[in-house]
Write a protein that binds this DNA or RNA. Sequence first.
DNA 1: TAAAAACATGACCGCGCGGTCAGTGACCGC
DNA 2: GCGGTCACTGACCGCGCGGTCATGTTTTTA
Lengths: 354, 354
Amino acid sequence: MPRVVGRGPGAPAPRSADVARVAGVSRKTVSRVLNNEPYVSDDVRRRVLEAAGELGYRLNHAARALASGRNRSIGVVALGTAGYGTASLLVGVERAVRDAGYALRVVNTVDGDPKGIAGAVTSLMEQGVDGVVVSEPIVEGEVSVRVDVPVLFVGAPPAFTAGQTLTVSVGAYALARAATEHLLELGHATVHHLAGPQGWYASKDRVEGWRAALAARGVHEPPVVEGDWSPASGYAAGRELASDPSVTAVFAAGDEMAIGLIHAFREAGRRVPEDISVVGFDGSPVFAYVSPPLTTVRQPFDAAAREGIRLLVHAIEEPETELPAAGEPPVELVVRGSTAPPPSHQGQTALRTT
Amino acid sequence: MPRVVGRGPGAPAPRSADVARVAGVSRKTVSRVLNNEPYVSDDVRRRVLEAAGELGYRLNHAARALASGRNRSIGVVALGTAGYGTASLLVGVERAVRDAGYALRVVNTVDGDPKGIAGAVTSLMEQGVDGVVVSEPIVEGEVSVRVDVPVLFVGAPPAFTAGQTLTVSVGAYALARAATEHLLELGHATVHHLAGPQGWYASKDRVEGWRAALAARGVHEPPVVEGDWSPASGYAAGRELASDPSVTAVFAAGDEMAIGLIHAFREAGRRVPEDISVVGFDGSPVFAYVSPPLTTVRQPFDAAAREGIRLLVHAIEEPETELPAAGEPPVELVVRGSTAPPPSHQGQTALRTT
DNA sequence: TAAAAACATGACCGCGCGGTCAGTGACCGC
DNA sequence: GCGGTCACTGACCGCGCGGTCATGTTTTTA
């Protein structure tokens, strides 16, 4: 059973001066050891660390931040939903931030509303962060925030005006294109697209990747259907699309929307994948275990988070030097059971047994 | 498009003294306004806030923390997975913490390993938090950490030894009992249980709720099958259980495990819910859209987070007074399509058409 | 009309660190 | 023996705020 040991009410927390006294060195030397500065012998370093351990000394980050002006912490503006995508990204960011030796502060926004983002960023600036991460799904609209630290936009196009702003791609364009091409290669005449909400960058990249794949084959581009990432919105879209017999393949901009879509198709008597193929977007592992198992493209959340934090930390610690270029992440298509050739190509496979 | 406006390199951030100068008041009065202390006229308050807005003044939390000893921030030890449960809880905690006027610091642990938790708590203490939340799924084992702030355990039994430790229930026992009773009421002779990993509190409560429901009806208790929360482990368990014809109802300790379970049953030719009923645990909305739609019990993440943070903030701000008692959250059973009477009761419903 | 409250000032301390500076040995190679 | 690098010491400043104290100045109340 986890046990929590209190310190006892009367004992004040030890300070670096206490450590110095116990180790028999000067306070400055303790500071050198704790900050890995040079000109400290191994023997003294060991003694200082021993004394710190003995006393249960913990560095006071607030005092350090005040004195040095550096906080060793990074703030993230996240979308306050429990979806697989946003949660994965947050987990990846936390790990990358931690590995870089920084602490993480989180502020959620209820939706991607620009005012909410501005407020969240302001709140983070007050808390004293050295850098800010704005997590993938952000909405268009003017957001003017005074920021004097580098800002990383995950999954946004690299087109911002002022300040130290960075972007890291999650490869959404390429993933959307790969998903669409997969369906075209199976023989579908065209591919419909169930997109995310208008104005979200996350939606836009996927629409463009889908569009590019269709254009490359000179295929007719059907109108985009719009959802809101929720399975319910996928279900609603599916009820519309099911009534159109020309629909044989749909690329959904999110796994959960794809699940709603498939449910609506089946309710309408359209089998998946025999009558209609569906590809999702994200790569949630659990949808390998539904029927049909969902074909999807995997977003490289961990890689994007690591790469993004690498850029951000570089911008924080060495603002002068050029930023190392970020490589595009690999495209990973996960073919499972929700995609197949269109009905017209299925004569020989004898799937019409119902 | 979001625009980020930098401050211009040469301008240092304004301080409270600058605000005081512009507003024509003393620095102490500015401090009073910002901390909502009494003895400030409305007129002065307004002038101070105007001056602050004009200068783009932002309070320096590090300096405040150093001077006052209070950080106005709460740390969370979370499980570093992207599952619906953990993500929902984190979102709920973030909102509750923010509403209480505190900032949130997050540290993930790779698994529920006690050493990891100890390290995470230490890291939070260094960062200077006024309270710590240890998120639901923690493992047994001695974890001795020096903590001098209140600690909230979410979903753990209220049995800790020292220090200011609080617990808040997510009602897992009652939910597990309700899930099991639902299956028994449908006429199943007994209910099997696919549990989470041994040693996790989250598992234990659910096992006990299930056991209590069986005992209350004097029903035989089959051996517990153990998974690791993943759909893959549910699938593996399902392959075992499917070979036993006496299995007609399973209560899984997580929605994702339930999904894996159902997949295995169907592969083995056992229909759900006609041959075997399955109930999950969590209430992820997306599983309303798979076939069969998953019957489950909804964990009150938001309510538990709010209640827990209320207790924690109370312990932080008024350590002397007694803690207000926490009410048990309501039990919410979501009956969907994965549960039905056992095969022996289905003669009249004509479901045997294959 | 006097006392008491409310409203505000200004000066100073200190929170626990990082940073700077001047200075001291001890060891090194030449 | 000389300068030079390394490994420290000790003293002091200041980061930006909260808190305390002594000292008013206005408004409200008895």
